[in-house]
Structures are given as structure tokens and as C-alpha cells.
Design a protein around this nucleic acid. Structure first.
Lengths: 239, 239
DNA sequence: GAGTACGAAATCGTATACGAAACACTATGG
DNA sequence: CCATAGTGTTTCGTATACGATTTCGTACTC
């Protein structure tokens, strides 16, 4: 049972958690964000203020606020007098997101490394073994979730909250895209699990920050490359 | 006259420019952001919604929206039922900001490098020479502005808009902090100009991305170190 | 039949208003 | 003289209302 990570990992979805909890504005923010991330509102979805307001039992003002925040995070696109939509999914966008994430996540992992203890390593390794098992039963959904848990362990100790925040935003954005664009590439998945193990070894042995950063970044780049290759094979459907 | 860069560089303050121009919400956003960046509202400044609304001749609703967006960008801190303040200035915060900026700017510069032409190099070099001159007349204000212009040339061609956006946000955040915490360290300034030249050489000679990224990152780290050293000498005044 | 013009419906944008929470100040008791 | 409770003021939070803008459908013309 390595599921323990799950809750903790995803709970800290955005470290910029304002002390606004409880307000309707905050409630709207959380709700809409959640629906975007979990795919209920998929890219291109039209976010009609009045409709969301009614859904949540609040008025439009707090909903507008929430959407403005989500816009600043890149999850939503806003157009004057037209409305808000969940932001786009084209391959280019995916590439940009992955590239950005590879950079900030690599840095976060490198900064975290010295603070990662044996317990964390054990936890991460257990998650990774679960992932390996997922490959047997072909369970991409669980695999993806575990993958996030694994990486959470790696960067959750990052002492720089700004970087951590960027990583979380990247993951959220990725999650919002994934629902419609992600393709599970079995070959890549196997490789990914191996790379995880290699990363853990590097951290265990106290490799220097540069090495860890580069490894973490390459790990993600490889995923991107696999995606691009797969996307070329089977043409990306336009929404 | 190398001032040409100035306007263009700073104009693209945030590439996430929503197509909302003209709305009062947008107006409020721009106005408040501008005042934070230029130091009119310095860190800790209490942003009273009604007051700002009156100032700008609008009602509070669009102002709230604007402030929410600024919060998501990290320029403002919001607390439920208490209000918004321009976000903090403590040395730790400065460190985090610089560190984050060093990472994203380093990446942006490396990604831009292959797209930087001779004309750009010439422009940047001219700016850098102006900076050198500023050291003669001791003009830190102009020096700082030129410094931004110089770096703008380096990363403005970055093909990844997300990374570019993060860089701009970092600079904005830094600008908002600088007004109250920045200390001009002459020794460091000289070194900085030399590092700029070295960076240009690297780009000119087509050095590989890793080398450029590392150099750009170190350039900023050195500035941070100089700041920290200076801050230790002369105790940082608390606001 | 295609294109344009007009009008109605939907949706956005912002002002105003009022209730709720936090803060500052004063008065009272120890 | 200090601590604390109570009151008043400030400021925030959200609902409601209405004007502005866009969009879509229909009818009319070429």
C-alpha cells in the first residue's frame, strides 16, 4: 500500500494557497480548477460565467475572480465580451508546457535532492515498483497517477516555494491537456520506470546538483520525444 | 543612442497579454501592476480596494479582479477579509526570486541563443558599453535600466512563450522588490559588465546550449551573492 | 441560391448596495 | 497601571441589476 503519497501529493496542488479558504471566490476557484485538471472541463470547453455560478450556487462575481486567477495560471483563456474557455491543446502548446516543466522540475528536483531522506527514497521506490506492476496489467490511468506521486516525492522538499509553485502549475496544466492528448506509450513507460530508479540512485549516492538536474530534465524530455513520435504516427485529432 | 531597446523591451511586460484591452478590469490591472513595478506602491503597501477604485474612477469589482490576477503572478498578497498588500521584501524572498529567475532566464537565454542575429549582438554590445559608461558617472538608475535592456535582447527571441512569460514575471517581481532592497554594489557592477561581454562571445561563437545556460545562470547567481554579502555588511532595514 | 442586413437572445462588464468580518479605540475592572 | 470586554469604524465579500457587446437566426435582396 503505497497509496499514502497520493493524497498528500495532490493536495498541495498549488502552494500559493491564499488564506482565502472558505470564501465563495475561493470555492469557485478550487471547483473550476479541479474540473479542468480532472478533465471534466476539457480543453476548448466554454466556461459560461452564469452557468458555473448557478452550478456552484453563487453569483457571478466570485466566479469571474476565480476565472481571472486561472487565466493568470494559464489554465483558461479569456476574451473580452466573448467569454472564457479552457485553454488549448495543440501539439505546440503541449511541447511548450513540457519544456517549461522539464526545466523547473529539473531545478526543483536538484534543489530538493539534499533534503531527501531515506524514508522518502523508500517511499518513492515503492511507488515506482507499483508503476512497474501497472505495466503488467496495463493500467495507464493508475500508472499516470503513480507517476505524479513519484515525482512529488522528488520535488516536495524543494526549499524555494516559487519554483515549487511553478512545478505544480506545470503539472496542473499538463493534467488538463493530458485528458485529451496524452497517449500512453508502453515502450516509453518501461523506460520511464528505469529512469526513475536511476534518479533515485543518483540522489541516494549524493550526486551533485548539476547531474541530478540534468537527469531529471532528460527524463521529461524523453517523455516529450516519445509523445511527439507517437503523435506523428497517428495524426493528432483536432478538437 | 542605444535607448531604442528600452521601449520595446519593457513594453512586452507580460506576454500573457489577454485580449481584454480596454476593459476597466484591464485598465486597473495595468495601472496597479505599473505602480507596483515602478515602486509607487512599495512592498508592504496596503492596497485598499475602494481607494484604488476611486483613484482610477472605476468601481471595486474590476479592481478586485485585477488584484486577483496580480496575486496569481506573485506581486500581491491577499488575505481574506483583511485586504491586499504588495508582497514582501525580506531577504529570503529576494533569494527565492533571484534563484527562480536565474533558472528560467538561463533557460530562456539558452533557447534564444541560436536565434540571436548579428544585429542583436551589436545592439546588446552597445547597451553593455553604455552600462560601462554609467559606471564612470555613477548612475545606478540608468545602469539598472540598461541592464534590463541588455538581458531583454538575450531572451526576447525565446521560442517558448511560457518560459518568456516566467522571465518577465521574474523581472517584474524583482523590480517591485528592488525599489526598496536593491543596493548598487560598484564592484559587482564592473564584473557584471564583463560577464555580459563574455556571454555575448559565447553566443557569437555558437557555444552549445548547456554552456550558455550555465553562464547565464551563474551571472545572476553572482549578483545574488553580491547582494547577500552587501546585506550582511549593512543590516537590512525592516520595513 | 448565396450573401447581406436586421433583430432577438445570450452573455459579458461594471456599478451599486448591503451584510459580515476584522481592526482600532475606549472604557471598565482588577 | 495593565488586561480585557465592548463598541464603532473601516474594509472586505457577494448579490443583484442594468447597460453594452457579441452571436446567432431569420428574412430579405441580388
Amino acid at each position: 500500500m503505497t497509496e499514502t503519497v497520493t493524497a498528500a501529493g495532490r493536495a498541495a496542488a498549488t502552494s500559493t494557497a491564499s488564506k482565502t479558504a472558505g470564501s465563495k471566490s475561493e470555492q469557485a476557484y478550487t471547483a473550476v480548477k479541479g474540473r479542468i485538471v480532472d478533465g471534466t472541463y476539457s480543453p476548448g470547453y466554454r466556461l459560461v460565467l452564469a452557468k458555473i455560478a448557478e452550478d456552484l450556487g453563487v453569483s457571478v462575481v466570485p466566479v469571474r475572480e476565480a476565472i481571472r486567477r486561472l487565466e493568470a495560471e494559464g489554465l483558461v483563456k479569456f476574451e473580452r465580451n466573448v467569454g472564457a474557455t479552457v485553454s488549448g491543446i495543440d501539439p505546440t502548446e503541449y511541447l511548450y508546457t513540457m519544456q517549461t516543466l522539464s526545466i523547473v522540475e529539473g531545478a526543483a528536483t536538484a534543489l530538493s535532492a539534499p533534503l531527501i531522506g531515506e524514508a522518502d527514497i523508500a517511499r518513492a521506490r515503492a511507488v515506482n515498483e507499483d508503476m512497474r506492476e501497472c505495466l503488467q496489467h496495463f493500467d495507464p490511468v493508475r500508472f499516470t497517477r503513480l507517476n505524479q506521486d513519484f515525482h512529488s516525492v522528488l520535488f516536495e522538499h524543494c526549499p524555494n516555494p516559487h519554483i515549487l509553485d511553478l512545478v505544480h502549475r506545470g503539472w496542473n496544466r499538463l493534467a488538463s491537456l493530458r485528458s485529451s492528448t496524452f497517449r500512453f506509450v508502453p515502450g516509453r513507460a518501461h523506460q520511464s520506470v528505469d529512469e526513475h530508479e536511476a534518479l533515485l540512485r543518483l540522489i541516494e549516492t549524493g550526486a551533485d546538483a548539476d547531474t541530478i538536474e540534468k537527469a531529471a530534465r532528460l527524463h521529461r524530455s524523453a517523455t516529450l520525444d516519445a509523445y511527439l513520435a507517437a503523435a506523428t504516427d497517428q495524426q493528432t485529432p483536432q478538437q
